[in-house]
């Protein structure tokens, strides 16, 4: 890891937006805050590529663009291959003297569909080949661009338009795929989770992902008021609660070594700070049906799975489980 970049909130606020205003994202969109902060963390010449999805469509409605950096979209399932092609081209053209910049960072951005599901093959391949780029997953936990259909990233019990809460089925029956662990299992140099509420942590992790040589994977939590049936004002609050309930813990895996990030570490050290998942679920319309006698038990199940995953993570991070 290179020297830590020191910055103040003024530095960040002053830095021009490379993801520009006027984008067509819904009001209160968590993913756009993620993108703004992500682009604030860039360190120099950068090329961005985005998979088909919310962030692509809201930012590139021809003839308008929200991207102040070179940017390309090609399809849904292949953004890691986009990055691979760009990285390979830059590398060889630099060698041949046709790229004058000493270094060009490459960032691939995809939603949960373009990462967990349809994009997983291209992602796994690019990671295995060791291309030097940062893959950023903005996880709004369903196919929001096409109208809230379930994905491998949709959590247990969430209602989506393809996992609706009916009279007998309580929303999605399966748990969220542990995508970040899957990426860590690729033994790439940098894997991390982040939440935009903890904006400083997100920026630092983005910068680390760019600085590291080889592939980096950053999983960012991105509340979606439209799809989660939440108040537009609550997106950052939910991004905070997800961490506080350990539904979405913050951690890094650097060269195979797991470590908790500060907000989650604080909970590990003071387990009484860990909030019940109920507090997080009750703010969201997608979990509304769980607060009825018929499906109430599922909240306990969600709590149980959240706790199990948290304990497993603590173990990986070398934090004694007995403490919690």
């Amino acid at each position: 890891m290179q020297s830590e970049w020191k910055f103040t909130s003024k530095d960040i606020a002053e830095k021009p937006d490379l993801f520009m205003s006027g984008h067509r994202a819904c009001a209160g969109c968590g993913a756009t805050t993620v993108l703004r902060l992500l682009m604030k963390a860039t360190r120099g010449p950068t090329i961005v590529t985005t998979a088909t999805g919310c962030m692509q469509i809201v930012s590139s409605m021809y003839p308008y663009t929200s991207w102040a950096v070179p940017w390309v979209h090609t399809a849904f399932e292949n953004v890691a291959a986009n990055a691979a092609g760009i990285e390979a081209a830059i590398k060889i053209m630099k060698k041949k003297g046709r790229v004058k910049h000493s270094h060009v960072d490459v960032i691939a951005i995809a939603g949960d569909g373009g990462t967990y599901d349809i994009g997983l093959q291209a992602l796994s391949g690019a990671m295995e080949r060791g291309h030097d780029f940062l893959f950023v997953l903005y996880d709004n936990e369903a196919y929001m661009n096409t109208g809230i259909q379930r994905s491998g990233g949709t959590p247990l019990g969430a209602a989506t338009t393809t996992s609706p809460a009916g009279t007998v089925v309580p929303g999605k029956l399966e748990t969220k795929k542990p995508i970040t662990e899957i990426m860590a299992a690729h033994e790439i140099p940098y894997v991390a989770t982040a939440s935009p509420y903890y904006w400083r942590d997100l920026i630092i992790k983005t910068r680390r992902g760019l600085e590291v040589e080889g592939p980096a994977f950053l999983h960012v939590f991105a509340p979606c008021p439209r799809g989660w049936r939440t108040d537009t004002a609550k997106s950052m609050e939910l991004a905070k609660l997800a961490v506080e309930t350990c539904v979405f813990p913050l951690w890094e895996c650097i060269n195979g070594e797991y470590q908790l990030s500060a907000p989650s570490k604080a909970i590990a050290l003071s387990p009484e700070k860990k909030k019940p998942v109920r507090e997080y679920l009750q703010l969201q319309g997608r979990f509304r049906h769980l607060f009825t006698p018929k499906f109430e038990k599922l909240i306990d199940e969600i709590q149980k799975i959240t706790d199990q995953r948290w304990q497993r993570l603590l173990k990986k991070c070398g934090v004694s489980a007995s403490k919690t």
Partner: peptide, 14 residues
């Protein structure tokens, strides 16, 4: 693309 999105004044959604 030949126009920046800053030309789209999304304030009128408010």
């Amino acid at each position: 693309c030949w126009k920046p999105s800053t030309a789209l004044l999304t304030g009128d959604w408010r």
